[in-house]
Design a protein around this nucleic acid. Structure first.
Lengths: 139, 139
DNA sequence: GTGATTGCAAATCTTTTGCACTAAA
DNA sequence: TTTAGTGCAAAAGATTTGCAATCAC
């Protein structure tokens, strides 16, 4: 067993922050590990904060909000708009869409190749398309 | 010129409320006229309230909120989720989608036949599709 | 009359902000 | 050091709620 067999998640997350020009502070590192190690996920600030506290990570809710927005600006996260009352963030930043379960407020990914738009109108004059968001609401 | 030539918008709006099982109160009638007479539009509670006041219609912001939700439940309006901070309501309740201008927070309709979804995954087991919302974000 | 509707002010909820303190480089 | 980042509490903005007064039927 060589020394290269062990995964080095700490370093991966650390590099991801450095690459985004964000100082790897204790709080950012802890939140990044919760978000980026393990499978993709959808979080709200509130949920991430509660989880952090459960994991004995000292971080304020304001910092969770700041961090989620910084990660989003840096392209590490994507904000999903499905609820006019709350913001969701997705660790999956590839091209894809969502199922939204109205009863439980849960989000599930729809892989990019499973939902195909056949025809789309041109953007209004003077504008460019920034993103196309598709939400399939189910219940 | 017969007596049938004159449009009777008042009666139309009144009947629309009655048909929805909503008492045609002064406030509901005034708001319904602002919403349903004239071309389709997108409004927030705030905007509708300001407009009402400008038209010397006495109605509280709480009542505007209540009314928008009652109209939505009754199927007279549709709520559009494009911004996780504010609710928009659309008087166009036919099948269609939207352009959202990120700079100005403005919404434009995309007629139903101008955006065609070619392939769509089946809804998760035990759920049914309630609606498919497509937002083309431009700037 | 009587039950639905309204207005108002207070409450709630999510998110942002100001600023003194702390920590990374 | 020096500058970015953090925590806290307060502020802000959107929306809802409780309840007495008012209105439609």
């Amino acid at each position: 067993m060589s020394k290269f067999d062990t995964p080095r998640p700490f370093k991966q997350v650390l590099d991801r922050l450095r690459g985004a020009g964000l100082r790897p502070t204790r709080q950012r590192l802890a939140l990044a590990k919760m978000l980026f190690e393990g499978p993709d996920r959808h979080v709200t600030a509130e949920i991430l904060h509660v989880e952090a506290q459960a994991a004995t990570i000292r971080v304020s809710l304001a910092t969770v909000y700041n961090t989620l927005h910084q990660f989003t600006s840096a392209g590490l996260l994507r904000e999903i708009v499905v609820d006019s009352q709350r913001s969701y963030f997705d660790t999956n930043i590839t091209d894809h869409h969502h199922f939204f379960f109205e009863g439980t407020n849960r989000l599930d990914d729809i892989p990019g190749d499973q939902l195909i738009v056949a025809s789309m109108p041109p953007p209004p004059a003077g504008t460019t398309v920034k993103r196309v968001d598709i939400v399939v609401r189910v219940e």
